[in-house]
Nucleic acid binder design. Structure first.
Ligand SMILES: [Zn+2]
Ligand SMILES: [Zn+2]
Ligand SMILES: [Zn+2]
Ligand SMILES: [Zn+2]
Lengths: 163, 163
DNA sequence: AACATAAATGATATATTATAACATTACAAG
DNA sequence: CTTGTAATGTTATAATATATCATTTATGTT
């Protein structure tokens, strides 16, 4: 029941190979359509993020890149991560200064996360735009929310008027 | 009209002296009640944050502290800011790595913000716990939301079971 | 008051996260 | 083949945050 209404993934056991494959294919297809270069470096960084539903810091990503022989200096990791975030293949978890692969490729969404402070697992919840209600997803998965923060970036009225 | 239904403050002109006074008094009262030390340093940091509805980085706070002769090393600022955040007198804006005074003292709330990327003004919107809908406040103030992120910290089911 | 304890602050050093700036390579359009 | 553009390589440094230990200040107890 719960698994049919809730779209969350990460706390529950699931075929993670499908997550990975689906995300890579979605990125490939999107880049094709939009004439973006899904280079080996960018693909590798996405694969690294997709290994787990867990957020990785840029330097952790960099270490794994180095092991793979694909770059060894911070800008390499940050640039690939920026690309992935910019095009929605990954998200930055601000409170962790870390990055996670998008768990909802193909679906237009505003990112909303439940972050376990013990195991660092990050679950992405489905959400439309400016309206959020995590309580349903939280109780469906047994996640106990302790603290929530919503941050909306945009342009305020007076700044908009100046332009 | 809008100003009566919307509780947001910061984009609109208002008696900011009241904001400041109210916040300081609320912090004083709360510390009294809870036997917390509202020391000169902590008070000064709150006053610094209260000067504007804008987020300040820890090092900006530190500079102002130094000018006031109240401390000159990073831990001084970070400790005072932690105290303020821990007790709800201020919030951290994660996407800016910066801190803002709470605009809703006395009201139990989960922080929700609208952050102008041009003028860096931070407006705190009233919100209950895990349910958010900024669209009403946004349209009331003429803020155009470009991107929204919700991050909930807590403990997941399997970690809870271990304890 | 004298003492013990805990909390806050001072100070030094260092860790972590992120970007600026410029050189080089890869590749496509003209 | 040149010219422009995007991506990557490389070096250096900026910005944010914390660990650790010393010192001072507040609090509670005898
Ligand atoms: Zn998965
Ligand atoms: Zn996503
Ligand atoms: Zn105000
Ligand atoms: Zn607040």
């Amino acid at each position: 029941m719960a698994s049919e209404t809730s779209k969350s993934v990460g706390f529950e056991k699931h075929d993670h190979g499908l997550c990975l494959e689906k995300a890579i294919k979605a990125a490939e297809a999107y880049c094709d359509r939009c004439n973006l270069q899904f280079t080996p470096l960018r693909r590798k960084v996405l694969e690294i993020l997709l290994e787990e539903h867990r957020a990785l810091g840029a330097y952790a990503v960099l270490d794994l890149l180095r092991e793979a022989g694909l770059g060894s200096q911070p800008p390499v990791a940050y640039r690939a991560l920026s690309f992935l975030v910019e095009h929605g293949f990954a998200h930055k978890i601000e409170r962790l200064n870390a990055f996670v692969a998008c768990a909802l490729p193909d679906i237009l969404h505003s990112p909303a996360f439940m972050i376990c402070r013990k195991c660092d697992t990050v679950v992405e919840a489905q959400s439309p735009s400016s309206s959020f209600d995590l309580s349903a997803t939280a109780s469906a998965t047994g996640f106990e929310i302790e603290q929530t923060t919503l941050e909306a970036k945009g342009v305020c009225n007076s700044c908009a008027e100046m332009a």
